Amino acid sequence: MTLYSKIIGTGSYLPEKRVTNQELADQLAAKGIETSDEWIVSRSGIAARHFAAPDQNSSDLAVNASKKALEMAGLQPNDIDLIIVASSTPDFFGSFPSTACVVQQKLGITNHGGAVDVQAVCSGFVYALTTADAFIRAGMNKNVLVIGAEVFSRILDFNDRTTCVLFGDGAGAVVLTASEEPGILATALHADGRHGNILCMPSSFGGAIAGEAYLYMDGPAVFKLAVSVLEKVAHEALEKADMTSDQVDWLIPHQANLRIMSSTAKKLGLPLEKMVVTVDQHGNTSAASIPLALDVAVRDGRVKKGQTIMMEGVGGGFTWGAVLARF
């Protein structure tokens, strides 16, 4: 019998505090930094984002999203035998204990299943989902909770209008289970460390923190590379599954920039109506963006059982990847 992995539950969570472009522009203006709703929308497609409360960490957002995913899947927390959390903003400095272990504790899971964090920035969820798929196909796990959770507002430089207007906080989760029915059809992961400097947090730890503990991004360089690799990795996943782009029902890309997303859809020959867009209301939530968008589309009825979805993303590192799945 061939073993597959299949998504049986999705969930998401956004912090209560919603910040519109105008509200953010007003806050920046008070510091002498000029921006506007029109400027932000024209360059990114973003109209609003959510920021976590001071007492909310990535694990808190992750737990809320996970509970919804578990409920949809019809599972209890102790049915989960592996947790994988993708995050660039872990609860603890040095990433230990891992955010996955914190989530395990907060969900009350006591079965001693595995828990681990994955770091691939905005590609993190694709990397985590691919890892979970491999574990299930190998027969090592039955039910895996895969989460993307971020509090990017904590690492933004609010003196830099080119980056601070782009990002938001949130979490998305899926339950992946062993199945005789194909679910994850194909995956592809890549990285090129030579481009690590175009999207990074340039602080280092050699006994003491050195450098700037804020996100840095070379926007034009990221845009150019993202448009190039996203098309290629999507075709790679399709070729592995012996499928073509016209068989894709929904494209769910990393929600970074509407221009990058639209360009990718056009290069794949997909009408924009087949692309799930949440970047306008969520901003760029890094590893959380794909599962957030997936959950929105599942719960509003767009993504239906039996449909084929393409999830893909790029992130700092430089990393990129794609997952082709039948929902």
Rank of each mutant, 00 (worst) to 15 (best):
A213D: 09
I80F: 06
A297I: 02
S289W: 06
W320L: 09
R302E: 01
V144H: 02
A73E: 00
A297M: 01
F125C: 12
V121S: 14
L199Q: 05
D300R: 10
D160G: 11
I209M: 14
P54F: 01
E71R: 11
V85A: 05
A149D: 05
A48W: 02
A73C: 03
G315K: 08
L176Q: 06
H235L: 15
H112G: 09
L75C: 09
V126F: 12
T244Y: 09
D242F: 13
G32D: 06
V296D: 10
F125H: 11
F223M: 15
Y214A: 13
V227C: 15
E38I: 07
D55C: 07
Q247I: 02
E312P: 03
I136T: 10
D37V: 10
D295M: 06
S123K: 14
Q27C: 03
K274R: 15
F167P: 01
V303M: 06
K240P: 06
V126G: 07
D218S: 12
I136N: 01
I7M: 00
I198P: 08
I33W: 02
V118P: 06
D295W: 00
A234R: 07
L251C: 03
Q76A: 12
S204G: 13
N64E: 15
Q27H: 11
I136D: 07
G124W: 11
G9E: 04
T131R: 11
K68P: 03
V118S: 07
D79E: 12
A288S: 11
K274Q: 14
D26A: 14
I155E: 07
A29I: 05
L268F: 08
G196K: 13
C200T: 15
V151R: 03
